Simulated scan of single mutants.
Amino acid sequence: MIKQIKQQQGHVSDSCTDCGSYVDIGAVVEAEDTLLVLSFIGDNALLQAQTMQQIAQQRFTDTKADIKNVDNSISLQLEFAFSVEKMIFQLENQL
Rank of each mutant, 00 (worst) to 15 (best):
I2K: 02
I2D: 07
K3W: 00
K3F: 01
Q4L: 06
Q7E: 07
Q8K: 14
Q8H: 14
Q8T: 00
Q8F: 01
Q9L: 11
Q9K: 08
G10H: 09
G10R: 01
V12Y: 05
V12P: 05
S13F: 09
D14R: 02
D14F: 04
C16G: 04
T17Y: 02
D18N: 10
D18R: 12
G20W: 05
G20R: 06
Y22N: 12
Y22G: 11
V23H: 06
V23R: 02
D24A: 06
V28Q: 01
V29Y: 08
V29M: 12
V29G: 01
V29L: 15
A31F: 01
D33T: 12
T34A: 05
T34S: 05
T34C: 15
L35E: 14
V37A: 12
V37K: 14
V37H: 01
V37W: 03
L38P: 01
L38Q: 09
F40H: 04
I41C: 02
I41K: 15
I41Q: 15
I41R: 15
G42P: 11
G42Y: 08
D43S: 12
N44Q: 10
N44R: 08
N44L: 14
A45F: 04
L46Q: 15
L46I: 12
L46S: 09
A49G: 06
A49N: 03
A49R: 03
Q50F: 00
Q50N: 09
T51Y: 10
M52R: 14
M52P: 01
M52A: 08
Q53D: 04
A56M: 05
Q57E: 14
Q58H: 13
F60G: 08
T61F: 00
D62W: 05
D62L: 05
T63W: 00
T63M: 10
K64V: 10
K64Y: 01
A65K: 07
A65D: 08
D66H: 12
I67L: 11
I67K: 07
K68R: 13
N69R: 10
V70G: 00
D71Y: 10
D71H: 02
D71Q: 11
I74Q: 13
I74W: 12
I74G: 02
S75I: 08
L76P: 08
L76I: 05
L76T: 07
Q77C: 10
L78M: 10
E79P: 03
F82D: 04
F82C: 07
S83M: 03
V84L: 13
V84G: 04
V84D: 04
V84Y: 12
V84T: 08
V84F: 11
K86Y: 11
K86A: 08
M87R: 15
M87E: 14
I88A: 11
F89R: 00
Q90F: 00
Q90C: 15
L91T: 01
E92P: 00
N93Y: 04
N93F: 00
Q94K: 15
L95W: 05
L95R: 00
